[in-house]
Design a binder for these strands. Structure first.
Length: 713
DNA sequence: CTTGGACAGGTGT
DNA sequence: TACACCTGT
């Protein structure tokens, strides 16, 4: 439920930037011959041509809509270009879009506080920049205004007869007698126009934007004129806007809450909400939501732009609709392994690029009983402490699944034995990693040590010297049988950490972890599937790790590991591209979005696909390092949590307190495995009286991108 | 918009 | 905290 936040005192300038049909643009950049053509991005195309995820504006003109199937789109407009979402490990892989989103963020975060709201949306708090501009070079002092800014839409501003729209906008932007808030908005308009041009130059993506005094209004405005345009909401036009705005269009009211307003209160537009007192709304919807509703009816929303450039969690999931539903343990385990592989890879990238680790692994699943269409669909989600290393994640995910399964089936009194789930079908699986925290600064030296020592391969291969005992029998076999609930997993984790050698063993296992499985048809084109195609192989339920190494492993697609898209690299990359394009475009003056590509073509420059190969950590070294890191931080954070009696302001203090108490929780054997200089460093941390290196890192990404800090000692 | 899927974020308990 | 549920693209 939404919660009301108090509106801050002074006027803020907030922008919402929304990429235009983002996936399409990413694919068009990759294949420039698609530019300007009616294009859509589909994922999976075996069944009815796949689902459309994004549709170019050219294609929308011909009636192609999101949520159509590929076949449907072809019927509506046969010439449409359909591009498929990349697939790895048999599932959609959105990483190219995530990375492209990071490129955009790296540009947009330059002028103010920046919040990455989704893969293709960003909020900016430009209050300071706007105030600075107003103080130094107020719009009224300008003789020429940026072309892109002149194309802005000003809500509530009618174009005067005989005057073209740009002249009217210019007059509004440069009014000397405007309200102070409108003057700040005018500055916001200029800043956002420039940022959008910068995004275009550096990423080749167009975007639309809304500029207003709060997030809610900015978000509303960004969608009003697309693509490649921006809309500003002057304070004076807020009431007019909301009066006629259907409640369902408002963020947070698109679902059940909005329906309830319509049905229970007869509210059709946001303006209709004005008729209800705050008390009345609180009566119906609770204190928080009631106040929130009362506020938004008046265009009030105090929600701050959070300084966050990175996601708070990572997830990997897949659904198995209709005939694709999973029936066997082996198939569930196979797909969990795939999902964990992807998740593990993304976590490793996050660690290297952003120096963060995730602390919680969560498994979600959905299931139904084939004989009963009305049966439960929800499977309890389960979580446990996250252990780095693909094999460990796979093991833990499977144990979580089994824990959930047991609870789930227990409610039905169903015995869990035999080769399948007694008529139950798994229709969705996902694993996610959350509670992502920055690693301690001192660990950078450890990172550096392992990087220098072991990171000589960009392929994910395990150096022989680290795989000392890759025996096939695994702790996930009979041992895991007894670890069926997350509580036990936690105890195992917190109490008796594995030694370094064991980490290595664990990593070795992932090569033999994959089981015999079936139902692996990634295309889900299973209308033709015969029942026996699902019933080959009958692994024992709850015995996960003991099957012999399946020869199918060799038939699996090669893992594609694209490392070139780190945010950090993009910052370097972008500045390089920026320079190149600056020179390519120099003397052309300000370019509007519409002219941009034309100008580029005229200048003959085409985007070079620049790939930055970065030296990568092997997973082995990461796991070793994280084993240490987690054992250090594990005790630390647990203690911090129990100690935090109300005051959470000074984490540094809390951490040092935590150290005092939890030193004994750190397994000394880990430290002994490390080289002498690292040992010394860690022991220095362990002496709170000296504790020279316990420094809380800043929480913004800028801190991690700072070379002096990320490479320190 | 009912019949998507793969995410991500948030709140309530 | 763990988990259910809601909302968005």
């Amino acid at each position: 439920m939404p919660v009301a936040r108090p509106e801050s005192s002074g006027a803020r300038i907030i922008a919402h930037v929304d990429m235009d049909c983002f996936y399409v643009q990413v694919e068009q950049r990759k294949q420039p011959q698609l530019r300007g053509l009616p294009t859509a991005v589909v994922q999976y195309n075996e069944w009815k041509g796949g689902a459309l995820l994004a549709v170019s504006y050219e294609a929308r003109k011909y009636g192609v809509k999101r949520f159509m199937r590929g076949d449907e789109a072809k019927e509506v407009f046969p010439q449409i270009e359909l591009v498929q979402v990349p697939v790895s490990r048999g599932k959609a892989d959105l990483s190219t879009y995530r990375n492209a989103g990071s490129e955009v963020v790296s540009v947009l975060s330059r002028k103010g506080r920046c919040e990455r709201a989704s893969i293709d949306e960003v909020y900016l708090d430009l209050t300071n920049a706007a105030e600075a501009m107003l103080a130094e070079i107020p719009p009224e002092s300008l003789e020429a205004v940026d072309e892109e800014a002149l194309k802005s839409h000003v809500l509530g501003l009618e174009s005067k007869d005989g005057n073209d729209a740009k002249a009217t906008v210019k007059e509004w932007l440069c009014r000397g007698d405007a309200d102070h808030r409108d003057k700040l908005l005018a500055c916001g308009v200029l800043i956002v126009a420039e940022l959008r041009m910068q995004v275009l130059k550096e990423t080749e993506f167009t975007c639309s934007a809304g500029i207003a005094h709060n997030k809610m209004l900015a978000k509303l405005a960004s969608g009003m004129n697309k693509p490649a345009q921006q809309t500003v909401v002057p304070f004076s036009s807020v009431k007019g806007l909301l009066d006629s705005l259907p409640v369902k269009k408002m963020k947070q009211l698109g679902g059940k809450l909005g329906t309830s307003l319509q049905c229970e209160l007869g509210v059709n537009t946001v303006g209709d909400l004005l008729k209800f007192s705050e008390d009345k709304l609180q009566e119906g919807y609770g204190v928080n939501t009631g106040t929130w509703l009362w506020n938004i009816a008046r265009g009030i929303s105090g929600e701050e732009v959070q300084a966050r450039l990175l996601p708070k969690s990572h997830g990997s999931g897949k659904s198995f609709p209709g005939p694709c539903a999973l029936k066997t343990v082996a198939s569930v385990q196979h797909w969990l392994n795939q999902l964990c592989e992807e998740l593990s890879e993304r976590l490793c990238s996050d660690l290297e690029q952003n120096k963060r680790i995730a602390r919680t692994l969560t498994l979600h699943a959905s299931a139904f009983k084939s004989s009963d269409s009305d049966s439960f669909r929800k499977f309890p989600s389960k979580s446990c402490p996250l252990r780095y290393g693909t094999a460990k994640m796979q093991e833990d995910a499977f144990n979580l699944f089994q824990a959930g399964l047991r609870e789930y089936l227990g409610l039905y009194g169903v015995k869990t034995q035999g080769s399948d789930y007694n008529g139950w079908r798994v229709i969705a699986l996902s694993v996610s990693a959350s509670k992502i925290v920055p690693i301690l600064s001192g660990t950078c030296s450890i990172m550096k040590y392992f990087k220098e020592d072991t990171c000589n391969s960009s392929l994910k291969q395990y150096p022989n010297n680290f795989i000392q005992d890759a025996e096939p029998s695994s702790p996930s076999g009979s041992e895991s049988y007894s670890k069926l609930n997350s509580t036990e997993l936690q105890h195992e984790f917190a109490g008796e950490a594995a030694c370094v050698q064991r980490v290595m063993d664990g990593l070795g296992q992932q090569e033999v972890k994959s089981n015999t499985w079936n139902e692996q048809d990634p295309s889900c084109s299973t209308e033709k599937h015969t029942p026996q195609s699902f019933s080959r192989g009958t692994p024992q339920l709850l015995l996960s790790g003991t099957e012999s190494h399946s020869s199918l492993d060799q038939n699996m697609p090669q893992r594609e590991v694209h490392w070139e898209d780190s945010s950090m690299e993009h910052i370097k990359l972008n500045s390089k591209q920026h320079d190149q394009k600056r020179s390519a475009l120099k003397d052309k003056g300000t370019l509007s979005s519409l002219n941009f590509f034309k100008s580029r073509n005229l200048s003959g420059s085409s985007r070079e696909q620049e790939h930055v190969e970065t030296t990568q950590n092997t997973e082995t070294s990461l796991a070793l390092e994280l084993n240490l890191e987690q054992r250090l931080q594990g005790g630390l954070i647990a203690q911090t949590a129990t100690n935090s009696s109300g005051c959470s302001s000074d984490q540094v203090q809390q951490r040092s307190v935590a150290w005092d108490y939890k030193i004994e929780d750190i397994d000394p054997s880990v430290i002994d495995e490390l080289p002498k200089e690292i040992q010394d460093e860690i022991r220095a941390w362990l002496r709170p009286s000296k504790r020279p290196n316990i420094v809380k890192r800043g929480s913004t990404i800028a801190d991690y991108f700072s070379p002096s800090k990320s490479r320190l000692r």
